[in-house]
């Protein structure tokens, strides 16, 4: 039995300790917003936050996560899609198929948490998630819009 702190709640999970965190989140906890894309930490579709840091959960064994570390998935990013990034994503129609967008949003949220007003160059350097539909320019615009909205709110 392992304890995991996910989206503000502690969950007991019974799972092989080698199981990647991604599959525990998807299959044991039933939260399917976090996606499987490659299994080797290349594409970023599985990005979640652990203690505020972006982590590619497909290549991280659940045994490497302690019960006190706070995991945030896309389901826990905000209540009612209220995060400025989610609002910007809707306003700019960022997603196409949308499969990579949970990971994209979690990576972007991590960037904004540490750098509330990133330059375009910083965004491009920081977000390395793959989107095969090709939403990158709207992702960049969405991050800038969310940063601006947060700055205005002060």
């Amino acid at each position: 039995m392992t304890k995991l702190h996910v989206n503000g709640r502690v969950h007991d999970v019974q799972v092989d300790p080698d199981t990647p965190l991604l599959w525990v989140i998807r299959e044991q906890l039933g939260m399917t917003g976090t996606k499987y894309g490659c299994g080797i930490a290349q594409c970023g579709a599985c990005t979640v936050q652990i203690d505020g840091q972006a982590v590619r959960s497909c290549a991280l064994p659940v045994s490497a996560v302690t019960p006190t570390q706070k995991i945030t998935t896309i389901e826990g990013l905000s209540a009612n899609s209220a995060h400025p990034l989610q609002q910007a994503w809707v306003a700019l129609d960022v997603p196409q198929c949308g499969y990579c967008q949970s990971g994209m949003l979690m990576a972007a949220a991590t960037l904004l948490a540490s750098n509330p007003k990133p330059t375009e160059a910083e965004i491009r350097e920081n977000i390395t998630n793959i989107c095969r539909c090709g939403t990158y320019n709207r992702v960049i615009a969405g991050i800038k819009r969310a940063a601006d909205a947060t700055a205005r709110r002060g």
């Binding site: 998807r26 939260m31 399917t32 917003g33 976090t34 996606k35 499987y36 998935t73 896309i74 389901e75 990013l77 905000s78 899609s81 989610q86 994503w89 809707v90 129609d93 960022v94 997603p95 949308g98 499969y99 967008q101 949970s102 949003l105």
Partner: peptide
């Protein structure tokens, strides 16, 4: 079809 794609609610075949 945008709203469910920003909060993880969109169900894909894999989900």
């Amino acid at each position: 079809d945008t709203r469910d794609k920003v909060n993880g609610k969109q169900v894909y075949g894999a989900d």
